[in-house]
C-alpha cells in the first residue's frame, strides 16, 4: 500500500483492545482495518437511526390531522416561552 500513512497517539490500553480485535479478525488484519471496520459500523448505526427518525417524520408530515394539531401546540409552546417570567 502506498497511501500516505501517519501515526496517532492512543493510550496503551486502547491500542491493546484494537490489537485484540485485529487478532480475532484473523491473520493479516491491520489496526487500520479494525478502525475502518469500527467506523463503518458506527456510520451504519447512525444512518439506521437517522433513517428511522426520517421515516417517522415523513409519516407524521403526511398526516394532515397530526400536522394541524402539532402546529397549534407549537404556537402555544412558543407563546409559553415568550411570556414574561416571574422573577
Amino acid at each position: 500500500m502506498t497511501a500516505d500513512m501517519t501515526s496517532i497517539k492512543v493510550p496503551k490500553a486502547l491500542r491493546d483492545e484494537l490489537n485484540e480485535l485485529a487478532n480475532q479478525a484473523g491473520r493479516g488484519t491491520t489496526l487500520a482495518d479494525v478502525l475502518t471496520r469500527l467506523l463503518e459500523e458506527h456510520k451504519t448505526t447512525r444512518l439506521r437511526q437517522r433513517l428511522a427518525f426520517e421515516e417517522l417524520l415523513a409519516r407524521a408530515k403526511a398526516d394532515p390531522d397530526a400536522v394541524a394539531r402539532a402546529e397549534r401546540i407549537t404556537q402555544g409552546a412558543i407563546e409559553h416561552l415568550r411570556r414574561p417570567q416571574a422573577s
Partner: peptide
C-alpha cells in the same frame, strides 16, 4: 412509539430554533 403529533411538534420546534 410513533406518535405523529409529537414527531411533528419536535420538528416544528426545531424549525423555530427552539
Amino acid at each position: 412509539r410513533g406518535d405523529l403529533v409529537v414527531a411533528n411538534l419536535v420538528a416544528a420546534l426545531d424549525e423555530h430554533a427552539v
